[in-house]
Nucleic acid binder design. Structure first.
Length: 422
RNA sequence: GGUGAGGUGGAUGAGUGGCUGAAAUCAACGGUUUGCUAAACCGUCGUACGUCCUUAAAGAUGUACCGAGGGUUCGAAUCCCUCCCUCACCGCCA
């Protein structure tokens, strides 16, 4: 959520940058500012009247103490009059504040000035690429055939148990999940990230904090009886660890990592690109999150990108890093790098990580602040990235590493997996 | 699910209708003292939204906030209602 004061002071810039993100309702900015004006006027009126009520009430107390009952009764009348004039003001104020809040929640984050213009994924910029594309045998199979051949993921039974898009991993397939999770977590903690295992359901306040609500309401599984949401990523519970906290400046950066299953309804995204592990409703992911000093967030973003790149390199998969254009960025992000791996049998790039700087967009909602050296309150910046999401890594790994003698497990993973191949 | 006890500032904790935005202690910060550390002493020490003043910082001032939301009252941390959460015990249970 953007800060009203910032919008007030940078109106034209805000509009311009929202346009970069292809945000259609730029007029909301003017609406916000006029509502904020009204809010301030009402607040002032309310405060002044309330101040009179308070001081008069104090006088009444003193008069009562002196036994001047009649004077006190007169003052009571005064207060009653004041209060009746107060009611409509506070009613109106509540409406304006609520409306202002609702509209503010609709505004996406501003893209940073480093964001390239563009509308579709085709406008994203390839920053760099690495790894080597394998040359596969003529009879190479896509991963949805490989998982059957080796009997490691059973979609049909997953669908029987729950529904489509809920894979049932089996045998070495299950162990590969466990090995990847363990390996990723170890890799992250070695880089100074503290490991967490968070709740997999969150309440409403938490879902608002990271921006899932109200923007992505329909994308989360919802438990009506308890008003909980299944997490779409561990970013949600992990970033909220520090909600409503004032952290010490010297404790920044705060670096956290967590494994969790991720639940996504993926409403409206059926059709192509959903075969096999390419798009599922439940998947495993290891996430990294940082809360940092605002001056450092863009350096940290690069650091996180390098971290993920290093991890991908150890898996020896062909990858590329994209800087997302304005039109392809998520609601809450100011700058995002996507990582894609090349799935050789599908001849297709698959997204396996998204590393973003949210600046103060999330922390303003969550009120995660620190007191700077001048004693002023400032919002910290939040960043996160996948390190890494499993299904597409597995898809790519199966396809690219298939041989006549089975599927080769990358060296870095072998000690976790306990074998050199499937 | 049941019963009981609770939720007050960074922490402990006092506070049962006006003198309480909140005692006291600890922590933290600044200073004095000091060979260093420690101790002692002095001072500062919540957040948000406004207003005034100012180039700004600082300062002054108003309002709100003692789990959340309502209510009673001239006046609520304090009384009443609803909800949430924590702890203990019981029940159920991986």
């Amino acid at each position: 959520m953007l800060q009203v004061a910032f919008i007030r002071n940078n109106k034209e810039e805000v509009k311009e940058r929202l346009t970069v993100k292809n945000f259609a309702e730029v007029d909301l900015v003017d609406e916000i500012l006029s509502m904020d004006e009204e809010r301030k006027k009402l607040q002032q009126e309310f405060d002044n009247t309330q101040a009179k009520v308070n001081s008069t009430s104090k006088e009444i107390g003193q008069l009562m103490a002196k036994g001047q009952k009649e004077n006190a009764e007169n003052k009571k009348q005064d207060v009653a009059t004041l209060k009746s004039s107060l009611q409509p003001i506070s009613d109106r104020l509540a409406i304006v504040e609520k409306h202002l809040q609702d509209v503010l929640l609709k505004l996406p984050n501003l893209p940073s000035d480093k964001v390239p213009p563009g509308k579709t994924p085709a406008d994203n910029i390839v920053v760099r690429a690495g790894g080597n594309e394998p040359t596969l045998a003529a009879n190479a199979l896509p991963h949805w055939d490989l998982i059957k051949k080796y009997d490691i993921v059973d979609f049909e039974t997953g669908a029987k148990i729950t529904g489509s898009g809920f894979p049932l991993y089996k045998g070495k397939g299950a162990k590969l999940q466990r090995a990847l999770i363990q390996y990723f977590l170890d890799f992250n903690t070695a880089a100074g990230y503290t490991e967490y295992l968070p709740p997999f359901m969150v309440n409403e306040a938490t879902a608002y904090g990271t921006g899932q609500l109200p923007d992505k309401e329909g994308q989360m599984y919802y438990m009506q009886a308890d008003n909980f949401y299944m997490i779409p990523t561990s970013e949600v519970p992990v970033t909220n660890i520090y909600r409503d906290e004032i952290v010490k400046e010297e404790n920044l950066p705060i670096k956290m990592t967590a494994y969790s299953p991720c639940f996504r309804r993926e409403a409206g995204s059926f059709g192509k690109d959903v075969r096999g592990l390419n798009r599922v409703h439940q998947f495993e992911k290891v996430e990294i999150v940082q809360l940092v000093h605002p001056e450092k967030s863009y350096d940290v973003l690069e650091e996180m990108v390098n971290h993920v790149e290093k991890l991908l390199n150890t898996l020896a998969l062909p990858y590329r890093i994209l800087k997302l254009c304005g039109g392809d960025m998520s609601f809450a992000s100011a700058l995002t790098y996507d990582f894609e791996v090349f799935s050789a049998a599908q001849q297709k790039w698959l997204e396996v990580s998204s590393v973003s700087n949210f600046e103060t967009f999330q922390t303003n909602r969550m009120k995660i602040r620190f007191k700077d050296s001048n004693g002023k309150m400032q919002l910290v910046h939040s960043l996160n990235g996948s390190s890494l999401a499993l299904p597409r890594i597995v898809a790519c790994l199966l396809e690219n590493n298939q041989t006549a003698n089975g599927i080769k497990i990358p060296l870095a993973l072998q000690s976790y997996f306990g074998a050199e191949s499937i």
